[in-house]
């Protein structure tokens, strides 16, 4: 069945947690709009508490919306929750695996929650264990798995119903680098197979690798959207010069830089200087030239690094704070 409407469409989507006792009312999601097409890989980016997980839960039809409209797979999550959930795969922030069951039993019972026949589950479970590289662990208790394995099992579990959309809430948070890379590889494979992905993350490299399109949210609102390249192009310069100064020199150096041509533009029309607690960032089209300017000002940074601008820089510019606070 080919549908013409987007897989997920949010208009002025809002989530308000009413005041409770001494806790005041909280607008977790404050009127956001987006649309998601089939086969797309869509990322929600934002600092902790920006409203990413809440948005995910509303899409997953496990959290009632407070305002605006939301259509998932052409259905209303408030009225057709079970039908929508039947066609989604969800990987929540915590694994929530069934610790009383084995690895294979976890897949089995999850399939049963979707009302799948046992034979179908058996066949899919074998395939998914393969996909998650957990064949040898099939009979083990879930408790004995490492963090990376638990995560892969959670993803395998979410695929048991062959979902139209896979929702991943911070899929690699808390994993060590090797485990993250294995996981990215698996997710990339899914993307290649045409699975529609929605993921939240606060790792920029993850977003750049996995997402075709990004939405940056802050305080429950969308502050920017586009492909990773578009965002970098629009909100950052080509290169960034990172400078570190001795503690006693830092403040004066920062002051000098802020009033220099580097900050005001001058020859470099896009120039900008960002002061961070531990370093100074100079946004520029040409990092080496900017460094020369710094030296010419007779400043002596401890370290100087010229690099390409990343999503992290976009993020800093848009929200004025770092991703993990």
């Amino acid at each position: 069945m080919v549908s013409t409407h987007p897989l997920v469409e949010a208009r002025d989507l809002t989530k308000v947690y009413p005041a409770r006792g001494s806790t005041p009312e909280f607008r977790a999601v404050d009127g956001i709009d987006f649309a998601l097409e089939r086969g797309e890989s869509f990322g929600l980016l934002g600092p902790n508490g920006a409203g990413k997980s809440t948005t995910m839960r509303m899409i997953a039809a496990t959290s009632p919306i407070s305002g605006g409209s939301l259509r998932v797979l052409g259905m209303d999550p408030m009225k057709q929750g079970p039908e929508i959930r039947a066609r989604l795969g969800v990987v929540t922030q915590d694994d929530h695996l069934d610790n009383e069951l084995t690895v294979r039993e976890n897949l089995h019972i999850y399939g049963r929650y979707f009302g799948l026949p046992r034979a179908v589950i058996r066949e899919r479970a074998t395939r998914l264990l393969d996909f998650a590289q957990l064949q040898e662990k099939a009979g083990d208790q879930v408790e004995t798995l490492s963090g990376g394995m638990r995560r892969r099992l959670t993803i395998a579990r979410s695929l048991i119903n062959e979902p139209d959309i896979l929702l991943l809430d911070e899929p690699t948070t808390g994993l060590d680098p090797q485990a993250r890379h294995i996981l990215w590889d698996r997710l990339f494979q899914l993307k290649q197979q045409g699975v529609t992905l929605i993921l939240t993350t606060h790792y920029m490299d993850e977003a750049e690798q996995l997402c075709d399109r990004l939405v940056v949210v802050d305080h429950g609102r969308i502050v920017a959207q586009g492909s990773p390249q578009e965002l970098i192009h629009r909100y950052a310069t080509r290169e960034v010069l990172e400078l570190r100064f001795r503690l006693d020199e830092r403040d004066t150096a920062a002051e000098k830089l802020r009033t220099s041509v580097l900050a005001t533009g001058g020859t470099d029309a896009e120039g900008r200087v960002e002061l961070l607690p531990d370093r100074v960032l100079v946004y520029t089209a040409d990092g080496e030239a900017a460094l020369a300017t710094v030296h010419a000002m007779s400043l002596t940074p401890l370290t100087a690094l010229v690099r390409r601008a990343t999503l992290e820089d976009v993020f800093l510019k848009l929200t004025g704070r770092s991703l993990i606070e």
Partner: peptide, 14 residues
Amino acid sequence: VEKTYEAILPTPLS
């Protein structure tokens, strides 16, 4: 403790 239901909520079970 186990949060078993957290994993069940995203399935068609209500």
